[in-house]
């Protein structure tokens, strides 16, 4: 469903992604790990369509479409979702109103009628329960005054509401205590299906105990330098990234 070929991207004249390849099939979970500053969030931003990132080379296709050709909103409407590493606070815009607008714009794009108020509220209730977000938080301004953990849960709540085909979770585990981590992972696992896929960006192995990946990739200096099964994550946890660096130097 997602096919990234030889992706080069830069920001403010600085090259960050330097020939990245990645393929994600429906029904799979991929973990992308890598040291700080290796380009993980940049990859997420480029996929989501952040305009300050320049694409210098390469291709990205998503469900048969040229992803790089689409506006940020159209990417979301095609079924891409990014859970932000740092969710934004938007005072005055209620979570509910925001999600209703988003959901209905996505539906309109896909030729579906607007959701009835009743069905919408039913979905809100159901998904809210899934991530154990209190009704009060769901109704408040988007992320305003939320704790770090609440913001992350709100990202997963939004994901659950919008039912994307491909979700990219950028360090959704950072700053979460073990309970919150379990809630977030449970949300993600419940939403897994044969038709959708998840890319989990993290630099701790911890999350992968809960969201078990089919593939683990190591992103280093703007490229995927190693891929393997879920055991690779354990190996990274144990040995750190130095052995990968050494392997690279030897090669």
């Amino acid at each position: 469903m997602l096919n990234i070929k030889n992706l080069h991207a830069s920001v403010e004249g600085k090259q960050i992604l330097k020939g990245l390849d990645l393929q994600v099939e429906p029904g799979s979970v991929h973990a992308i790990m890598g040291p700080n500053g290796s380009g993980k969030s940049t990859l997420a931003s480029v996929l989501a369509g952040r305009e300050e990132y320049e694409i210098d080379e390469g291709e990205v296709s998503f469900l048969g479409k040229d992803l790089l050709d689409l506006s940020a909103e159209d990417r979301a409407r095609e079924g891409l979702f990014l859970a932000f590493q740092y969710p934004i606070e938007i005072p005055g815009v209620s979570n509910i109103n925001f999600l209703k607008t988003a959901l209905n714009e996505i539906r309109e794009y896909n030729g579906l009628p607007a959701m009835s108020a009743k069905d919408f509220l039913k979905r809100v209730k159901e998904k809210q329960a899934l991530v154990e977000l209190s009704g009060n938080l769901a109704r408040r301004s988007v992320n305003e005054g939320f704790s770090g953990g609440e913001k992350k849960r709100n990202e997963i709540f939004q994901m659950a509401m919008l039912e994307p085909k491909l979700s990219v979770l950028d360090e959704t585990d950072s700053g979460l205590d073990i309970d919150a981590l379990r809630i977030v992972a449970n949300g993600v696992n419940t939403l897994r299906s044969e038709d959708n896929a998840t890319v989990v960006i993290t630099h701790y192995q911890r999350l992968l105990d809960y969201i078990v990946p089919d593939f683990v990739h190591v992103l280093y200096q703007g490229r995927i330098v190693k891929s393997g099964p879920k055991e690779l994550a354990l190996e990274l946890e144990e040995k750190g990234y130095d052995w990968i660096k050494e392997e690279l130097e030897l090669a």
Partner: peptide
Amino acid sequence: DEEAVFYLRSRGIGEASARKLMINAFAAD
């Protein structure tokens, strides 16, 4: 707040309606 506009757009909200939501939010109080 362009970060906020991007956040809204990344959820499927068109740019014009994202800005409108933000203006309404600003005026709301």
